[in-house]
Amino acid sequence: MVEIFTDGSSRGNPGPGGFGVVMRYKGNVKEISKGYRLTTNNRMELLAVIVGLEAMKRNDLKIRIVSDSKYVVDAINKKWVFGWQKKGFKGKKNPDLWRRYLKISAQFKNLEFVWIKGHAGHPENERCDELAVERATGSELLVDAEFEALTEENNSLL
């Protein structure tokens, strides 16, 4: 089984943010992290899951995704995301990322999502948090183009 641990961070909501992913399979560990100049915590939590799945080289393995995000885990485990999809994500935040999640997750037959309490001493979750914060506060911040376009559009309506 592959274990994918994820976390997202935002310094302000919206504000600079980042995500961290720790992947573990048969004693091998891979870490992935990126930072963005303007985003939200929920976007980073969801993006961490997506990036972890996109990094998979095989789709025939059981995958356990461990996250401290109720937003992500509940939307998937309680199948809310499929209802949102049927309604075209109308009125829902992060439709671009949810569509991206649905596309990548469809490639896997055996996904399990587990929620854990954040900042509770879980070693991999703590490491993901360190990676996310490090990237969120770093100098090499990427542009979350979808989010910034929506933010700019909403601000022009005020």
Rank of each mutant, 00 (worst) to 15 (best):
K70Q: 13
Y71I: 06
V73H: 11
D74G: 05
A75F: 07
A75K: 08
N77V: 14
N77R: 15
K79Y: 15
V81C: 13
V81G: 02
F82R: 15
W84I: 00
K86S: 06
G88K: 11
F89L: 03
G91Q: 11
G91L: 06
G91C: 00
N94C: 01
N94W: 04
P95Q: 03
W98E: 01
R99G: 13
R100P: 05
L102C: 14
K103P: 11
I104D: 11
I104Y: 04
Q107F: 10
L111T: 15
L111V: 12
E112D: 07
E112V: 14
V114F: 12
K117E: 12
G118C: 11
A120N: 15
A120K: 09
G121W: 06
H122K: 07
H122E: 14
P123V: 12
N125V: 13
E126D: 10
E126H: 04
E126I: 12
E126M: 10
E126W: 07
R127F: 02
R127Q: 01
C128A: 05
C128F: 00
L131K: 07
L131S: 14
V133A: 09
V133P: 10
E134Y: 00
G138C: 07
G138Q: 09
E140C: 10
L142V: 01
V143Y: 04
V143E: 08
A145P: 05
A145C: 08
E148S: 11
A149C: 01
L150P: 06
T151K: 09
